[in-house]
């Protein structure tokens, strides 16, 4: 086990030497890279990284440039998790055999994927990695849409969002199903640690990433990643949207230890109405027509119920 990097405050954090480079090709204002920087800067350990196909991957390793200063691999859309699990297995094998080139290093194995590659096409692969309890971390950059291919719905797309394959129209309010609860599903693999994080709460993020990197076993992290292009907001407002997502409790921040013990890690002082979160995004614009306003009420009811559920679970200490 390596020493955990000391990060008391943001000034101290800002002394980190980034291992993710600029001149990547992500959209201006993309939250993916903000999250990646917070994750990578949370540790001074060597990293073995993987990415499933998606925005992050196609924008950070396009020949002849890579934006990664650590070992990194991409194979396909569905298997970033398994790629890093294979590397982790090799690390174990070479350690047993005494063949590591730098045996004193303590690499952390981390895979990134979007909600497309995580909630949908790569779901089984992640489940396999979690079930096998590899010493690795899987992080979803959850922007609730297939942004890389131009805005198709995913199983993370929430009710009422207009996506290109579930568009709002004269007789449709867009996506009809609510997103699935990936954190709960992954926690059900009885992994040592799973959590939801947001880039605006950098300290909560760093704490969870550090904890996750230092537990032995598989860790699942779901990170909300506001998408300027598909959520349809001005690029400058990325962090405002992140704030709205956590403070409206649409994305509550919590962790689940050993698959059961739930801790809420952020309680907004002023809870923002969900309506404000929805109003800030073009993808929900049509919900503000008279005939769909009931959906906004339903949104609020659902978010309230989920928050109450999380609090009950936390109190129950089970």
């Amino acid at each position: 086990m390596s020493e955990i990097k000391k990060i008391k405050n943001l000034k101290e954090f800002s002394t980190s030497a980034d291992r993710f480079e600029g001149a990547h090709l992500l959209c201006p204002g993309c939250a993916h890279s903000i999250i990646v920087r917070e994750v990578l800067n949370a540790t001074n350990d060597d990293l073995v990284l993987a990415a499933s196909t998606g925005c992050l991957e196609v924008c950070t390793a396009v020949y002849p440039y890579t934006s990664w200063d650590a070992s990194w691999i991409h194979i396909g859309f569905e298997n970033g998790s398994t790629a890093v699990s294979g590397a982790e297995a090799m690390y174990k094998a070479l350690k047993t055999k005494g063949r590591l080139k730098q045996p004193d290093r303590n690499p952390k194995f981390v895979a990134f994927g979007g909600d497309g590659s995580s909630y949908d096409i790569g779901f089984q692969w992640i489940s396999g990695c979690m079930e096998r309890n590899h010493n690795m971390m899987y992080i979803v950059l959850d922007n609730e849409v297939y942004a890389n291919t131009g805005g198709q719905r995913s199983s993370s797309t929430p009710i009422g969002a207009s996506a290109t394959t579930t568009p709002a129209g004269s007789v449709s309010y867009g996506e009809k199903r609510n997103k699935k609860d990936m954190v709960a599903i992954m926690a059900s693999h009885n992994i040592p640690y799973s959590a939801q994080v947001a880039p605006n709460k950098w300290k909560d993020m760093v704490k969870k990433i550090q904890h996750g990197m230092n537990v032995e076993g598989a860790v699942f992290i779901n990170a909300v990643s506001p998408c300027t292009t598909e959520w349809k907001f001005d690029p400058k407002d990325t962090m405002h949207l992140a704030d709205l997502s956590t403070d409206s409790l649409v994305f509550p921040l919590y962790e689940i230890i050993d698959g059961h013990e739930l801790n809420i890690t952020y309680r907004p002082k002023n809870i923002v109405p969900v309506e404000e979160y929805l109003a800030a995004q073009g993808r929900f614009k049509h919900l503000f027509k008279d005939e769909y306003k009931y959906l906004i009420k339903e949104w609020q009811t659902r978010v309230d119920a989920n928050w109450a559920y999380l609090q009950r679970r936390e109190e129950a200490r089970v």
């Binding site: 480079e21 990547h24 201006p28 204002g29 939250a31 903000i34 920087r37 950098w202 001005d234």
Partner: peptide, 28 residues
């Protein structure tokens, strides 16, 4: 911390400028 393009140059806890080769002008 919130720059998506690694373009804020900080040294010794001080902000000292912007890396204009990597800044995309998002305004975050």
């Amino acid at each position: 911390v919130y720059c998506p393009d690694v373009s804020i140059i900080s040294r010794d806890k001080k902000m000292i400028g912007i890396d204009m080769d990597h800044c995309k002008g998002c305004g975050v």
